[in-house]
């Protein structure tokens, strides 16, 4: 166990934000979960007694008749904002006094940094470069992430859970978002920050970075495993595999979705449903491609003269 190596990664000034992000995320997930479970308990109680549901103020926080429903922004909100500004300023001051912003040697195009890492918030995409060609990892995927985030309000037809924390009423939406944000985005960043070393090779936390390490991996393409040699056949084979993933995966997702989310399924239009399926399957394709690469050393599944997937 090379503690020094681990410490030098974790204490690198530009890695400190990601080190800070992890406990922050854990805290806020806990905070959200606490309120969601309180709201879910209230919902369960109200559902069992319709009489109570008619009179209850429907929040977990206390409210009594005669209390004002609204409070003045001045001072009740503004004092909090003021306090928040002061706290952020103090945190920033202390951080800036104790830790210096990194400054390396002057830029030198002839001396490549190894590993050459992007800023920590882009390391998820850089990690994707291992599994996908740059046009997917660097261009198509960010575009799909942005568009995917933008379509969320238009494909989520569930009217419940608007303006309060809940898990029970929005299992699918929240589960999907947690999968995308925590499992894919944040954990890819953590891998990119803490695990990728020289040559973008895998070094477990605490393992010494060996700049001379070479790993011989023979990556194969999926068509090769099936003995397909001609370009035309490879292209057609790829279309079948990728198309098959979307067809079969779409069918499985459809079967599950209409069983476990019948109300959402009924509410969604064809356009909403197909857009959701497209993004869902593309998102799921990510870890699948990673797995077949890590387990079976398969590089491409679809090879054409113009692009490879």
């Amino acid at each position: 166990m090379d503690w020094h190596q681990l410490w030098s990664i974790a204490s690198a000034p530009d890695n400190v934000p990601i080190v800070a992000l992890i406990p922050l995320l854990i805290f806020y997930i806990y905070l959200a979960w606490k309120q969601a479970s309180a709201n879910d308990a209230l919902l369960a109680e109200l559902e069992t007694s319709p009489a109570l549901a008619k009179t209850h103020h429907r929040k977990t926080w206390p409210f009594r008749p005669g209390w004002q429903k609204e409070v003045h922004v001045w001072p009740f909100l503004l004092r909090i904002e003021f306090l928040a500004a002061i706290i952020v300023t103090i945190v920033l001051m202390v951080w800036s006094i104790t830790l210096n912003a990194p400054l390396e040697e002057p830029s030198n195009p002839n001396l490549t940094m190894n590993p050459a890492k992007a800023p920590w918030y882009f390391l998820g995409l850089q990690e994707m470069l291992v599994y996908f060609d740059p046009w997917i990892a660097g261009v198509v995927m960010p575009t799909l992430i942005i568009i995917g985030l933008m379509v969320i309000p238009y494909i989520d037809t569930n009217p419940l859970g608007n303006g309060y924390y809940t898990w029970k009423q929005r299992k699918f939406a929240i589960g999907t978002f947690l999968f995308g944000f925590i499992i894919l985005w944040v954990s890819m960043i953590i891998i990119g920050t803490f695990i990728r070393g020289p040559g973008w090779q895998w070094f477990w936390p605490g393992q010494t970075w060996d700049h001379n390490r070479l790993i011989y991996v023979v990556n194969r393409d999926l068509p090769d495993l099936f003995g397909i040699t001609s370009n035309l056949a490879k292209g057609i084979f790829g279309v079948i595999v990728v198309g098959g993933f979307y067809a079969i995966g779409g069918f499985v997702a459809h079967a599950l979705f209409r069983r476990y989310n019948p109300k959402d399924y009924r509410r969604m239009s064809l356009l909403q449903y197909s857009i959701m399926m497209l993004f869902l399957l593309t998102m799921v394709a990510l870890p699948i491609k990673m797995l077949i690469r890590l387990l079976f050393h398969i590089k491409y599944v679809w090879i054409t003269p113009w692009f490879n997937v």
């Binding site: 530009d14 990194p102 400054l103 390396e104 040697e105 002057p106 830029s107 030198n108 195009p109 001396l111 490549t112 940094m113 050459a116 890492k117 992007a118 800023p119 882009f122 995409l125 850089q126 470069l129 740059p134 990892a137 660097g138 261009v139």
Partner: peptide, 14 residues
């Protein structure tokens, strides 16, 4: 510096 130069090189190479 080297940090920014290579981060932007990697980024824009995409």
């Amino acid at each position: 510096d080297q940090l920014g130069f290579w981060a932007v090189t990697v980024g824009t190479n995409m």
